[in-house]
Design a binder for these strands. Structure first.
Lengths: 336, 336
DNA sequence: CTGAAAGCGCTTACAG
DNA sequence: CTGAAAGCGCTTACAG
């Protein structure tokens, strides 16, 4: 059994009120009593129960976080910066990993409600009516980080996917590429998939380049799907001279596929990634990528959430961060 | 404000005791009352306060987890399987990320104590006297996953590092290599560093191969240090024909360094990794690695912890899991 | 400056 | 089968 405030009071020879006061750093406690209390605390190894405190203060200092895949370097990097910001502000993270299991998400949101978390951060793009309704009913700040589900009324911290994809494609065009393949993301539940695809298409048409649908494929943002989609593309009679994959993971998958076909990046095919994950520096050749400010994303998300918590007002205004093209070695000028 | 049990009781026209009973699935509640209560719960969107429950039940269903680096694919994979096991058993995870900051670790252990977590999982190898003392005082189950700090009396879930390193080295020897470089890990705080190093050395001497200290370097398990240490090794007059790095991250760093020097893996230098992380399949050539059962590690850790929690007895017996050599493409027979 | 008492939202003997 | 009351470990007016 852990010691309780009553034990401290007894040992120190004061009332629990007084112990509580020195615990909470109030003034109006005589130095000698304070001393005695602190001694008793040390002696007993007392640590106040956060549980009891939460109950009376009506404040838990808990944030619920839903991650689609902890093993993804993209999400775990965001989570890491969220954790840092939380820790700095004396908040603790309840972390839930959802792998393709929307029921688990619902279950966890329920748990979050029971735990009385003060806010929720979701990095999962799939969300159904039931979850939406539950979140609304809970009436606490919710913020989406790095994703923006369709038709939703919650705030997202996100980049301008359309423009980022447009700029990435434009860069390839400026390198002289005209057959530019595309490995897109999910087109159903998430706005990024559609916006990045639009950005790609419009960049091409704005530069009067014909869209070759044979060279357009859609994956699920993961390495394996990048590999598979690239394999498909390589089967075409006329393979593109450059491929733009809308995640670094898929880009690396594509690079590996190219390597396994004994072709070379970037000499045979240039590859452009998206995200700015650790893989960009790990891959050989190093991956040129349209980067999201991953580190900032977590920080900004927490800041926005804490602001909502503090001001007791929910906001549904998206926060748009800047994307940035980082040129490395995987894209070169096309020989013309 | 969230509705409370009192509100439910009022709406349903029963006592709070009755509401509590249907909440906890007790028998001895007449069907019509149960019905009314459930209706009231739905109507109000009531979810019982886990905080209040924890206080009275003296049980939080919380586990504290300390990860050294969330962005590492090794640790995040273990964390992911820990999370899965926790969720299955209705436990929630309080996650703390420690990056080289031992004070933060102490702070978090304190938080864990205040939160009255029922158990703690630590994947961090650095631990000082203060932390050790605190953990002991808390008197709750603590288990180390994938690491075993020196001189400690807590249980670890771990592989036989000595034997694993021995076997990996032996494999390289059997491929005909005689100059086998080594990129080791931290030799101070963690037993794996020393045990893997011993395994490597003994494998060599058991096969009458002279140890060349020039080709032995120590990193910090991360990609970058693998790169740097390999750079050092390549500066030597006689470079090894194979290098064994005691983490896949360092192995990939070494491979990248070799690539950047316009040498080839495995034709010029074979590379053996350690861990079995995602990188093994991502790298090109694919990385041959002495693998830990990463997925199992999380599962086994949680199982052991839950057992201790349930039986209210702490154990300090290590659990040793099997290592396994997975041959891919980065090691080949030496031309002799 | 200090303490007795009420209350946070639940559960659980105890009584009926 | 149902409910009034005590208690979980704290904080916070309130009174002195």
């Amino acid at each position: 059994m852990q010691p309780k405030i009553k034990d401290v009071a007894r040992v120190a020879g004061v009332s629990v009120t007084t112990v509580s006061r020195v615990l909470n750093g109030e003034r109006y406690v005589k130095d000698d009593l304070k001393e005695k209390v602190n001694q008793a605390i040390d002696q007993l190894g007392y640590a106040p129960s956060h549980i009891a405190r939460s109950l009376v203060r009506n404040k838990t200092n808990l944030i619920g976080v839903i991650v689609p895949d902890l093993t993804s370097s993209f999400y775990s990097t965001i989570l890491s910066s969220i954790e840092e910001a939380a820790s700095t502000n004396d908040y603790n993270l309840l972390v839930c990993n959802i792998i393709e299991d929307i029921d688990k998400e619902l279950k966890y949101i329920n748990v979050f409600q029971e735990m009385r978390v003060e806010g929720i951060i979701i990095m999962h793009e799939k969300i159904n009516e039931e979850i939406r309704a539950l979140i609304h009913k809970m009436n606490i700040p919710v913020i989406f980080s790095s994703v923006k589900p369709m038709d939703q009324e919650f705030a997202s911290v996100i980049i301008d996917d359309y423009k980022a994809a447009y700029d990435a494609t434009k860069y390839l065009i400026e390198l002289g590429h005209e057959e530019i393949g595309f490995i897109g993301g999910d087109m159903r539940d998430i706005t990024s998939g559609q916006n990045r695809y639009s950005g790609y298409r419009n960049a091409l048409s704005d530069h009067s380049i014909k869209i070759i649908y044979e060279n357009i494929r859609f994956g699920d943002y993961k390495v394996k799907s990048g590999y598979e989609q690239m394999k498909d593309i390589l089967r075409n009679k006329q393979t593109p001279t450059a491929v733009f994959a809308v995640s670094d993971d898929m880009a690396v998958g594509a690079m590996n596929c190219i390597w396994d076909h004994n072709l070379r990046v970037p000499e045979d095919i240039s590859i452009m990634g998206f995200d700015g994950s650790q893989l960009t520096e790990l891959a050989r050749p190093r991956l040129t990528s349209m980067e999201q400010p991953i580190q900032d994303m977590g920080k900004v998300t927490m800041a926005a959430l804490l602001k909502q918590i503090t001001n007791k007002e929910t906001s549904n205004e998206d926060i748009i961060l800047e994307h940035k093209l980082v040129v490395r070695e995987s894209c070169i000028r096309r020989d013309s």
